[in-house]
Structures are given as C-alpha cells and as structure tokens.
C-alpha cells in the first residue's frame, strides 16, 4: 500500500520528468518595476518559443490576525471582491500577463485552466491560472500564500523545477554583514535556490552578458551553460572576464580566457563577443567591466552563512555591490 507521501512523490517526479525538456522560467512579481523588467527579459529569453514556460509568481503572506486586531484581513479582502475590485496580487499578475500577451490574442489563441489548492492556515489558498498556446508554450499566473516571500519562492521551486528564477534585487551596496544576517528576499532566493537566479537591478536589455571565469571545471560548466542560455536570445552576446589578483597570474588568466573561447567554439560553435583579462581585486574589476552589460554572470560561490560573514565570496559580493543585474548560475 503506497503512502500519501509516496503517491505525492511519484506524481511530482512524473510532472518533473514531463517538464525536463522544457525551458521554465519563474518570474517573481511584487509590483515593482524590477519585477516587470525581469518579466520582459524572460520574454526576450525565448518567451515566444514553443518549449518555453513562463510562470509569474506573486507571493502573499499568510494573514497574521494579531496585526489586524484579531479580525482576519480576509474579511477586508472579501469586501473588496464584493465591490468588484481585484486583489493586489491578481492585479499585478494580470499587469504582467498583459506585458506578455495582448488581450485579443489571449482570447483567440490560448486555452485557460484555473486551479485552486488548499493551503494550511489560509482560507483563500493558492490560485493558479494556466494559459496554454497551441504551439506548446505556456504562461502561468500563480498567486501563492506563504509565511514570507522568500519561502514562497523557494517552495515554488519544488513544484517546478525551473531552469531560472528571475526576481527584483535588493538595493545596491548593502553591507556584507547586513546582507548575510538580514538577507532581503532576493538574497535569500539567490543563496538558497537550487537553480540559477537572475537578480534584476537597472536592467537594460540587449547589452549582453559578462560571464566570469577562473579556470575551474565549475566555471567551464558555467560558460557552457551561459552560452546555451544566451542562444535563446534573438541577439546572443556573451563576453568573458578573468581576473588575476596579481601581475604574475596574468599569463595564466589570459590562457584561461583563450581556452574558454576555444572550448565554446569547439563544443557549441559559439563566439565570445569580447574577452577581458584584468589584474586586481576580482569583485571590483568584475563590477567595473560588468556595468556595461545587461547582466554579470557568475557561478555560485557555494559558501555557507558563516563563510559569507567571514570571507564573503566573489559571487555574493558582486551580488551586493554591482550597479546592474547579476545572474548566479547553478
């Protein structure tokens, strides 16, 4: 006799296997401009392709009755609905949908399916509207209830999986201690998500990605993964940078860049747009060169909480200090 947990696991695995060949992007919407910029970027990243699923996620915190004096906030929400008003989450998700698909097109060419999932502790639960195009691509609006936004986004990964999570980014220039001890939603997602995460900050599309390499096997994988990702854009532009901490390492850094360039040509027939070899502090150099690109791409430094406080990590430091968007690859 199979337990409920086993049944759930089998169902989830079947769903995940079905989704293995699809390119799934989870875009977190919170009403900010960064969220919508990220969504437009997701659309550029192959949103029109049949193998692409874009999932728009809005996370609403579970009602805390004490803050509303013991009267559940749902009473106010129900009152809003009775006036014919849309709840903020739905309103923001619909704004996102309008950015992806026009009204007329949506009516004519897309099938709609609505699902409600019961959530412990919240009477309204999770709500999902799935729009399926005849070509195969889908757009999903997901209104999720969770204790906090970061938990909601990370929980949502379980129902995925996703190739990429896109979320707005915290303010540039947060201190290392602050970012580690009181991480923002985007920082929590960047640290803990099992897949790649794009943190949107001053995102200007069309300027390409700058991928950071250090000659390790992991960075080689990152370059390959980034080239595959870039190929989804209408005008793929990827540049690479390798920073040596001192002048002695310069020749080695040059060799790493050349090898990466050859490897991309050989494996994927992909040309790097520019290559940079710099000497100095890796974080500073990457940020300086990276500001001319749409996003800086780095591999996850894989450091735990204590290590982040003590020594940081190139990826987490770039994430905090960069002027523009940063993608943490996994």
């Amino acid at each position: 006799m199979r337990t409920e947990e086993e049944k759930y696991r089998e169902k989830l695995e079947a769903l995940q296997n079905k989704r293995r060949n699809r390119f799934r992007i989870l875009v977190c919407i919170d009403g900010s401009d960064e969220g919508y910029l990220g969504l437009k970027y997701a659309a550029r990243m192959g949103g029109q392709r049949p193998d692409c699923d874009i999932i728009l996620l809005y996370v609403r915190p579970i009602d805390q009755g004490l803050h509303s004096g013991g009267l559940q906030v749902r009473i106010a929400r129900e009152n809003m609905l009775s006036w014919g008003l849309e709840l903020p989450g739905i309103r923001r998700l619909k704004t996102g949908l309008e950015l992806l698909v026009g009204d007329e097109e949506l009516k004519k060419e897309w099938e709609v399916e609505t699902t409600n999932t019961i959530v412990d502790g919240d009477p309204l639960g999770d709500n999902k509207i799935e729009y399926r195009h005849s070509s195969g691509r889908t757009v999903v609006l997901k209104l999720k209830v969770a204790p906090d936004a970061a938990s909601g986004i990370l929980d949502q990964y379980e129902l995925g999986p996703y190739n990429l999570i896109i979320t707005g980014s915290a303010k540039q220039g947060r201190g290392r201690l602050r970012a580690t001890l009181t991480p923002s939603v985007s920082e929590k997602v960047a640290y803990h998500a099992p897949c790649s995460v794009l943190l949107v900050r001053n995102l200007v599309p069309g300027k390409g990605h700058l991928v950071c390499i250090d000659g390790s096997d992991f960075s080689t994988q990152i370059v390959l993964q980034e080239a595959e990702l870039a190929a989804r854009f209408p005008d793929p532009k990827v540049s690479a940078i390798c920073v040596s901490p001192d002048a002695e390492g310069m020749s080695k850094a040059e060799k790493i860049v050349v090898e990466a360039s050859h490897m991309l040509k050989r494996e994927l027939n992909f040309e790097l747009k520019e290559t940079y070899v710099e000497v100095g502090d890796p974080v500073e150099k990457i940020i300086e060169v990276g500001k001319n690109y749409s996003a800086i791409v780095l591999g996850d430094s894989g450091k735990g909480t204590m290590n982040r406080i003590l020594g940081g990590g190139v990826s987490t430091d770039v994430l905090r200090l960069a002027y523009n968007s940063v993608m943490i690859m996994r």
Partner: peptide, 12 residues
Amino acid sequence: TPACTIVYASGY
C-alpha cells in the same frame, strides 16, 4: 495598528 495592516493589504 489594525487599520494600517488592513489598508496596506490594498497593495497601493
């Protein structure tokens, strides 16, 4: 205050 929490739920 409860009133602040409730109006904040408007999303505006």
